[in-house]
Amino acid sequence: GGMLPEGADAVTPFEDVEEQTDTILIDKPIEAGSCLGLEGEDIKIGETILQNGTFLHAGHIGAAASIGIGELECYEKPVVAVGVSGDEIAEIGETLGPGEVYDTNSYTLSAVVFKSGGVAEKLPIVRDSVEQIEEALSSSNADIITFTGGSSVGERDLIVDAIRNLGEVIFHGITVKPGKPTLLGKVGEKLVLGMPGYPTSCLTIANVLLTPMLRKMSRSEYKADSNLVEATLSETVTSKSASHQVIPVKLSNGTVKTVFKGSSVITSMSNADGYIELPDGISEIKAGEMVSVTLL
């Protein structure tokens, strides 16, 4: 990396030189200009090295540093407050009481947020109380608040009631299975995404709705088909539901099989490599057909 001495027009690697007493022996021909880095040969004056909206990787950072730029103006990562509600939910590390389960959704959602370009802030567990949910919604300064549990379409619509008291419910209930009781609301400038408490339902909606939201907000490159692979279905999949179905699957040697065991069990997703979709109106996909698998 040193300056070329005056009068020289090439450099030869040290390993190609044999040192003698007061001379060196070079047994390979050297062409003029060999092993030289010329001024301006990489980045020229006036050349654009980064476009507005570029999703930065290490090479971009290095290019900026090479011309003396140590700071770049970037979009902030969206902050997502991750909340769970339920009298039966216990923190990891606590001793489970009768009927209690460990908090799963905070951890799976935080992982989805991180992977999707956001920053997750885990909220304390909220009990089944409209007042506690309202307090959590009001006190958070996040861009998005996610809440799992308490959003079922029934008598105890706790999150729905809390959002209506503080803001507006944009929609409640979608024709997606699993994940039917999903809701979207707004409290001030904050979006609130209410998801089912069942782990598989929750993670499914996070992949289908939360990930695209975060990619859009963070200006990250997001192409719906960028993580799709084609595979042969090893078994016939049928549906009696009128909903759009999202089905976790396992890939093996170009074939795919379903691993869904139920909305309430997390292993439906932990054993999956991705998911396939069975749109509303399609009741069957036969074994041997090619399907598109969205990788997790």
Results as ranks from 00 to 15, higher is better:
Ser152Pro: 07
Val265Phe: 15
Gly179Thr: 06
Phe147Ile: 13
Thr148Lys: 02
Thr255Ser: 15
Thr255Trp: 11
Ser151Cys: 10
Thr200Ala: 07
Glu189Ser: 09
Val176Ser: 06
Thr267Ala: 10
Thr267Met: 12
Ile145Lys: 01
Lys177Glu: 10
Leu203Gly: 12
Arg164Ile: 15
Met195Pro: 06
Glu134Cys: 13
Lys190Val: 05
Ser218Gly: 06
Ser241Glu: 00
Arg156Leu: 11
Pro196Cys: 03
Lys257Arg: 15
Ser268Ile: 10
Val259Gln: 11
Arg164Glu: 13
Leu228Gln: 08
Phe147Glu: 08
Pro178Glu: 05
Glu221Arg: 14
Gly150Val: 01
Ile145Gly: 01
Ser234Leu: 14
Ser140Arg: 10
Asn253Phe: 15
Val176Met: 04
Leu166Phe: 11
Lys180Asp: 03
Gly185Leu: 03
Thr232Pro: 00
Pro178Cys: 07
Ser139Met: 13
Ser241Pro: 04
Ser220Trp: 09
Ser218Leu: 03
Gly167Val: 07
Ser264Ala: 14
Ser139His: 05
Thr258Gln: 12
Asp161Tyr: 08
Ser218Asp: 09
Glu168Asn: 15
Phe171Glu: 00
Phe171Gln: 01
Ala136Gln: 03
Lys223Gly: 14
Ile174Arg: 01
Arg215Gly: 10
Asn165Ala: 03
Glu135Gln: 13
Leu210Pro: 03
Asp161Glu: 14
Ser201Tyr: 02
Ser226Gln: 14
Ser152Tyr: 06
Gly185Tyr: 09
Val187Phe: 02
Asn207Val: 05
Glu168Cys: 13
Pro181Gln: 07
Ala162Asp: 06
Asp225Phe: 10
Lys180Ser: 00
His244Tyr: 13
Lys257Gln: 14
Ser220Asp: 03
Ile247Gly: 03
Ser268Pro: 07
Ile266Lys: 07
Pro181Phe: 04
Ser139Leu: 07
Glu168His: 11
Ser252Glu: 08
Ile170Asn: 10
Leu137Met: 08
Leu210Val: 01
Arg164Tyr: 10
Ala206Leu: 02
Leu184Val: 14
Glu221Tyr: 12
Val169Lys: 02
Ser239Ile: 05
Leu228Asp: 03
Asn141Thr: 04
Ala242Ile: 14
Lys186Ile: 11
Val153Ala: 13
